[in-house]
Design a protein around this nucleic acid. Sequence first.
DNA 1: GACAGGTCATTCAAAAAAGGTATCAACCGA
DNA 2: TCGGTTGATACCTTTTTTGAATGACCTGTC
Lengths: 305, 305
Amino acid sequence: MDLRKLRYFLTVADEKNLGRAAALLHISQPPLTRQIHQLEDELGVQLFNRTPKGMELTEAGYLLAKESRNIFALVQQASEKTQRASQGRLGRLDVAVFGSGVLDTIPRLLLKFKSDYPEVKVVLHTMEKEEQIQALRQHRISLGFNRMLKPLPDITSELVNRESLLLAVNANSPLATQPVIKFKELANHPMVLFASSGRPNFVDKVMSLCYSAGFTPEITQEVGDVVTGVALVASGFGVCLVSKSGSTLSLPGVVYREIEDMPKDATIDLSCVYRTGDNSKLLASFLSCLQEFKELNADTNTTTP
Amino acid sequence: MDLRKLRYFLTVADEKNLGRAAALLHISQPPLTRQIHQLEDELGVQLFNRTPKGMELTEAGYLLAKESRNIFALVQQASEKTQRASQGRLGRLDVAVFGSGVLDTIPRLLLKFKSDYPEVKVVLHTMEKEEQIQALRQHRISLGFNRMLKPLPDITSELVNRESLLLAVNANSPLATQPVIKFKELANHPMVLFASSGRPNFVDKVMSLCYSAGFTPEITQEVGDVVTGVALVASGFGVCLVSKSGSTLSLPGVVYREIEDMPKDATIDLSCVYRTGDNSKLLASFLSCLQEFKELNADTNTTTP
DNA sequence: GACAGGTCATTCAAAAAAGGTATCAACCGA
DNA sequence: TCGGTTGATACCTTTTTTGAATGACCTGTC
């Protein structure tokens, strides 16, 4: 039972006449007769009652006609879906996220992607840096978002955006009312730091900034993610340096302040990573969307130089 | 894109190797190579990445593989369903019912049919006698249940069962307390009669019974169906002759009584009707079920001679 | 009641499609 | 570098499908 026979069958079922059906199918009548007979023999079922007026569906034939239409709809769909998939417009993209990127940039990027490629299902996984690399290598994910990545030959990384750092301060702290905060003042305040596994990480970055400024920070607590860090600030554990994205987190008792003389290199990059040479069309779609996203954000940034 | 190509494609997708797939398909490798290429050309989509290790599905190929499995499942199902339909075990049977038959006999019969042929969907339509004949001729229904049918050449009728008549009496009537009721006594009591359209009908039957017994009944009201008739008995309109099936209707204030000297021919037949020469397998299934049903009921009847 | 005009079924040769054998080119690991 | 693997290609054979002509049957008409 192949699709040709079914198509022939459906045409005869519609026309109720072998001659007309054959004409519609651009074949002559005898082969059509034979194909119908073959289909009947194969199923062991009489599909038509032959009358002097033409071909009349039996109950079984009627059912098969109905089922056949479903089959053709599915085949048509399969063909179209396959074509869309080949263009990177349909499918599933497994993406790993972690850290403060999920608070602002990544949601906006994903929103744009969903609107540009509505038929691509994005599945998010929360994974730390090292885990992401491993998952990429095992093809469990196609894309990861993270910060502070060291270069690797089999993993390509692309900058998503670069953010300056802000200081999360407890509202009761004198720093909260102070008009201007200087970087060196942090030496006098206990500090909360968050850092995911894997070097280099955010702790390394902050420590080196402080050393450059000539002091050693007093670390009261190290935590695993921004949210916990800011929560500790709210509880009075101390101050905490966070990315601009991180400052979208608003907790009672926490305010964010700029530091006046923040070093120019005191920025933190959000990057995305993927397998070097991955020629997945879905990934290509995503990266092209990311490119547009960056250009869009560059435009809005230039308005505030 | 026919099913052979899809089957070949799926095998290659599973094996990830043309040689092994060809062996499984009992063909040699070169034609398989060609079929896969043809499928790719037809869709305009690369389905595999050829590597020195074998054939690796692309994203589009992966999707097509998934869809193909659905297609094969549907094809398999269509084939099986068609075969069951050809044996009269699957499909839809439109059945018309009317009158007191629906109160007892027909539900029991349908229950048996549903249990014998669970995949046949029985659709019930309420139609009077004449309407049923018309609907049969227009192929809107395949079967009708009715009483008192006159023979027709294009409609075959088959007896379902034969029931005696009972008298529905208002509980306050003297007849209700009387130990024995004689048929002639009906002359002294007003009577409710129900009759569907089309001759001969139940009214004709009762009238002729009364004339034979030597009296003319006093008809207080004619109604269209049993339920209404018995309801009027409950309201004190008079007595009403009903079939035994009809007496399963219990309304407050109504009791059913036998008539001692009921004439032997005072019975009423429930028949089913269908198009003469209808060779529908579903109908055949139903009629064979009906036959068994009648034998079953005959058995239970013989226990009370 | 013969006949014209429809229906589907059958026959046989031609065309098209699928399959098979032998061979090639590329890659990989020993 | 050299077997052993992979998929691709060329050429021929077999099978399947098709087409033109024709047959068999029914129906409504004259």
